[in-house]
Design a protein around this nucleic acid. Structure first.
Lengths: 217, 217
DNA sequence: GTCTATAGACTGATAGAC
DNA sequence: GTCTATCAGTCTATAGAC
């Protein structure tokens, strides 16, 4: 139980309230975005009131920064270790990463819109603040593996950025467009999630198809 | 020149001011989102002042609705005719649609974030209001062509929604993640756009690969 | 049509009682 | 720690002069 005693005279009994407010804030922020969220919304959602929010977090912005940081680190951290794992092959990495991401997105479907949204509002601020700057193409073992496959002639000599974009796009975008897709295709949330489960195996297989049977351009 | 005379005693001289405010609003709304945009921002950006905005558009929300409607119709309308074109094959449709979309996205890179964002804020409202409800899978000739290819055994019997998602994902997502991609990969806007130009040919080719050489699952 | 000035409502944050 | 009450600032929208 780390970081329990934060406040001066707190004899640790607070952790619960503080956490409840944070979770309420997480829900409201991801649903409505920073600007459209009022501190009163968070208070209502948490069951407490505005004064408590400022008591624990000083300001709406500071609370948001904390949520944002945790969210994005959830997104980034677990990925880095997989990208640099020297015991897995490149196709294995794909399958592990994509499976891991889809699991996480099924649990937190609002996350991508939230992150992309706030990144778009102020790119430099968030990228630096949040750990995306740890992902440098040069330092990542997966990129090295890719270069080796190109050198061995096992993969077409197309800019590897394209394959990266494809994997990420096919994994994340359906969740971003989920409200639209579900509405147009008449899918329930469960049906949609079942399709996403299918994609855990399908996307890596598709990427293999692309890599091994490039169509003439 | 349709819809020129709107106001009562206007002897048409306004069209210019009204249009300038609308364009200023378009820029600010797409950059900051609805909630974070203040009428003062639009006034400043347009070179006029707040009173004029309400003189022409009655309220911030009404102005936003107009912009939104035009944006999304830009997104939807031109696509419908291609989807229902009976003179083009399915692969041809893919190439035309993807090329068309990438052109449009290079010109309006902020559009997808803006639309997805506001759709997410209130899905039902926008979908109905804006013409997405015209896209019904049953009525679209492209879907019929797909079914014929499945029946002829030319395409694997995977839920066609997956292929639709893939095409849309690979086309649109890179623009959504553009700030992140450019920052991480160290790409200028021109370099990024050049990659997107490449994808006009690549994405249809990749989809063909997937369709004709499905990997064992 | 375009401006300045201001009304009226809402928002984030704090003071102070318990 | 938690609440109610309230302040100061900001926002949208309008009134009224030109």
């Amino acid at each position: 139980m780390p970081e329990k005693v934060k406040k001066e005279q707190s004899i640790e009994k607070n952790a619960s309230t503080e956490e409840k407010i944070k979770e309420a804030a997480r829900r409201v922020f991801t649903r409505k975005g920073y600007a459209a969220t009022r501190t009163r919304d968070i208070a209502e959602e948490s069951g407490y009131n505005v004064a408590l929010i400022n008591y624990y977090f000083r300001s709406k912005e500071k609370l948001f920064d904390i949520i944002m940081l945790e969210h994005i680190q959830l997104f980034v951290n677990s990925v880095l270790e997989h990208l640099n794992d020297r015991t897995t092959s490149l196709p294995q990495k794909l399958e592990i990463l994509i499976g891991h991401y889809i699991d996480m997105l099924i649990k937190n479907p609002d996350l991508p819109v939230f992150i992309l949204n706030e990144i778009n509002a102020d790119p430099a601020k968030l990228i630096a603040k949040v750990g995306f700057d740890k992902i440098k193409p040069e330092n990542i073992y997966m990129a090295e593996q890719w270069r080796m496959m190109v050198a061995a002639g096992k993969v077409p000599p197309i800019n590897p950025i394209h394959f990266l974009m494809n994997a990420v796009s096919m994994t994340i975008f359906p969740f971003i467009a989920s409200p639209l897709i579900r509405n147009r295709m008449g899918l329930t949330l469960d049906e949609f999630n079942a399709l996403m489960e299918e994609r855990k195996k399908l996307i890596p297989a598709w990427i293999k198809s692309i890599m091994h049977n490039p169509q003439p351009l």
